[in-house]
């Protein structure tokens, strides 16, 4: 173990942590939706890619940095998620899983091919002015772009936590998630709360997309990969647990970065899937999930 190696390892870990925050934000959306409605959003990666494309469009044609257009994108995603839940998904709540799966698969196909039809198959990236800036922390060099994305992701996660912990709507959503019947009995408007939840979940993934585009360019073909990645993260962290999703994002981010350093890059997701299998078998509630599900 040379000092050089340790330094590059530490560098990879930091890089993984920063990217992992954005992964965590993406997975948070999936986790919130599942935790409240027990619906698995099979279109999650597709939504992520749409978020990336919107941020790219804003940058390319309006010259707005993704970090600036992020609130608008999140708001748009909230509205779209709200509408999607109200119209398409709502009748499928409580239906057999394969029917929900087919519905969201259809949504996923429409989203990703809509992006393909409009933006084409070429990869689209954003060249920020801060592209090559970096901060030096001791011997470590932090990419400015990655650091900004990670900080923004942390801020959004905090906002989300405040929403669920402090606001009346957030508390009502948690009540509906804990006890659906009870929530109906005390007079909560559960369908509306579900629509808000789906909107919030969608806003998370839209925001994550806007951040991700500053790190890597987007193609429609990333969508399936992101859906799988989000699944891996939430299962490893604990499906339905907010801190679990963030921790899972960090863990997968770091493991990808370290595996990319130590192994061939093409082997890096093997580690994630191996971890997924182990967690499913040994601790299906996830590393940070509650024991009963």
């Amino acid at each position: 173990m040379t000092a050089d190696f340790l330094l590059s390892l530490a560098q990879a870990v930091t890089k993984g942590l920063l990217t992992g925050m954005v992964y965590g934000l993406m997975a948070l959306g999936l986790s919130v939706i599942f935790g409240v409605m027990r619906v698995v959003n099979f279109a999650h990666g597709e939504m992520m890619v749409i978020g990336m494309y919107l941020a790219w469009l804003g940058f390319e044609y309006l010259e707005i940095s993704p970090l600036v257009s992020l609130p608008a994108i999140a708001a748009l995603f909230f509205a779209a998620g709200y509408a999607l839940q109200r119209t398409l998904i709502s009748p499928f709540i409580g239906r057999p899983e394969h029917q929900q799966f087919l519905l969201l698969l259809a949504v996923a196909i429409l989203l990703v091919n809509g992006a393909l039809a409009i933006a084409g198959p070429d990869s689209r990236g954003v060249q920020l002015d801060s592209q090559f800036d970096s901060y030096e922390v001791g011997p470590l060099v932090l990419d400015a772009v990655r650091l900004h994305a990670a900080l923004a992701a942390i801020a959004i996660a905090l906002l989300l936590w405040l929403f669920f912990a402090r606001t009346r709507t957030g508390k009502s959503i948690r009540a509906a998630a804990d006890n659906h019947m009870g929530a109906l009995v005390v007079g909560l408007d559960v369908p509306r709360l579900y629509a808000i939840t789906f909107g919030v979940g969608a806003a998370c993934v839209g925001a994550a997309g806007a951040l991700m585009i500053t790190i890597i360019p987007v193609t429609p073909f990333l969508a399936g990969e992101y859906t799988l990645l989000a699944f891996v993260i939430v299962i490893v962290g604990g499906l339905g647990s907010m801190t679990g999703a963030l921790a899972g994002g960090l863990l997968i981010g770091v493991s990808e970065a370290v595996a990319g350093l130590l192994l061939q890059p093409s082997l890096k997701s093997m580690f994630s899937f191996g971890l997924l299998i182990l967690v499913l078998l040994l601790r299906p509630q996830g590393l940070l999930g509650k024991a009963s599900r």
Binding site: R95, Q99, A106, V107, I109, G114, L116, A117
Partner: peptide, 21 residues
């Protein structure tokens, strides 16, 4: 148009799952 075939396909799946679940 690239992807248009899949868009039709997705719409068809959507219609089927909504009306003949």
């Amino acid at each position: 148009i690239p992807g248009i075939k899949q868009i039709f396909y997705g719409l068809a799946l959507l219609v089927i799952v909504m009306f003949r679940p």
